[in-house]
Amino acid sequence: MGHKADSSFFAFKKPWSRRKDTILAYYLEPYLAKVRRLGRPVLLVDGFAGPGKYGDGETGSPSIMCEKARSAMEVAGPTVEVWGIERDAALHRSLESNLSEFHFFKALSGAFDDYVARIRGKAKTHTTFVYVDPFSASAIDLNRLTQLAAPIAETKASVELLLNFNTPIFVRCALAALKRHVPPPVAGEEDVGESYEPGDSGDSPVDLDGLDQITGGNWWRDAMSERLSFGEKIDQVVAGIERQLRQRFAEMCWVGIKAKQEHPIPKYHMFFGSRHPDALELMNDAMVKARGASDFEVDMFASQEIDPLIIGLAARWLPRRELMLGVVRRAFCRCFWKDIRGRIEVLLKQGQLVSESGKKRINDETRVKQADGLRAV
C-alpha cells in the first residue's frame, strides 16, 4: 500500500517530520563513511518518498539521502544509488523534478511493496539501507519488511532498516476492529493537534486481517486486553514489533518520540535493525545528537547515573567494547558512546572496575569486570 498524503500534506514541513529527518541525516553521514570499508556499492531506499521537497522549500527525506550520498562520493566514498519510491502520480512527477540534479537518483513509481523483491535482490550485491516512513499505518506489512533482511543470512550482506511506526494510531485502529472502546486523545498526554481517529483516512486498517498483515500475525490481539491501559497497550505493541524484527536483525533497537516532553504517550516509535553492532553504536549516537530537535521517551543519563548499569553488566570478564554495547542495548539513546567509554575509565580509576591488564587506560579488546565485593545492579 502507499500513503494517502497528497500535495497539501507537503505544503510545509511539520515539526514531527523535521524530527525524523534530523535523525536520518545524523545517521547517514557516519554510516556512509563506515560502509566504505566494505568495498561494495551502496543502495539507499526511501520507501515512501513524497515529492522530495516541501512547498516551503525545506528538504524531504529523499533529498537528505541524495545530499549525504553526494557528499560521501565527493571524498572518495562508495558508489551510491538512491531510490525514491512514490505511488501517487503527481507526487512522483514532483519527485523526479525536484531531485533531477542528482544523477544517481531514481524516482520509482508504484507502491513500496511492489519493490521489496527488487530491493532484496539488489541487497545481494549492494550495502543497503531502507527507510520506511509511511503516512498511514496500513502501508506497513511486517512480513514483507522482514524479507528485506533475507540476504543477510544468504550472502552475509549488509542490510539496515529504519522504520517509523505510529503506534497510537495502530492501537486505536485495533480497538475499533475489535469493537472495543476507542479512547480519544487527551490533551496533556499526547499530541491532540496531530491525532487520528479510525476512519479519518480512506485506507485506515480497521479490519482484523489488515491489522494482522501490518504486524505479521495476530499476536497484537493479546495486547488489546481490557486490563491494560492505553499506554500499556502501546508498550505491548512496541515489544511485539521488536520481537518480529529481531528474528531477522541481530541488532535491534527502538525509541519513542513525543510531540512534547511532558506527554506520557509518544507520537510514534522509530525501530532500527542491522546485522552489525557498529550500526547500533552509530544509530545510538545519531539519536542522542538529534535530541536537541526532539522530545524523546527516555531521558538522558547524567554521567554518574550510568555507573550502576556498567558495573552490573561487568559481573564477568568482558572486553570493553562488548561492555559498552551491552550498555547501549540496555539503555539505547541515553548517552553518547564516548561518554560510556569515559565512565568506564573513571570507574577503573576509582577501583570499582578492574582490567585484566591491571591498567587504568585500556583499549576496546581489554577485558574488564567489576571489582570483588561489588554487587551487580
Results as ranks from 00 to 15, higher is better:
I310M: 07
V80E: 05
V192F: 09
F105E: 06
P51L: 02
Y268Q: 03
I340N: 11
E74S: 14
E365P: 00
D46F: 10
L374P: 05
L108P: 10
D21H: 13
L163G: 04
H269Q: 05
G292H: 13
G326Y: 07
S303W: 02
A139Q: 02
G202R: 09
N164P: 04
M65F: 14
L162R: 02
T155G: 04
M287E: 02
N143F: 01
E96V: 10
L108Q: 07
P168R: 04
A149Q: 14
S274V: 08
Q370C: 13
A89P: 11
A302K: 14
S158W: 08
V42L: 12
Q244P: 00
A174E: 07
K13R: 14
A123M: 05
E58K: 06
V346H: 00
Q350W: 13
I234Q: 09
T167F: 06
A25I: 12
S229C: 13
P30T: 11
L178G: 00
E281A: 12
K233C: 15
G55H: 08
P319M: 10
I340Q: 08
P308Q: 15
D46R: 09
N143K: 12
G121Y: 01
G55P: 03
G84K: 05
E190M: 15
D46V: 05
Y26S: 14
V182F: 00
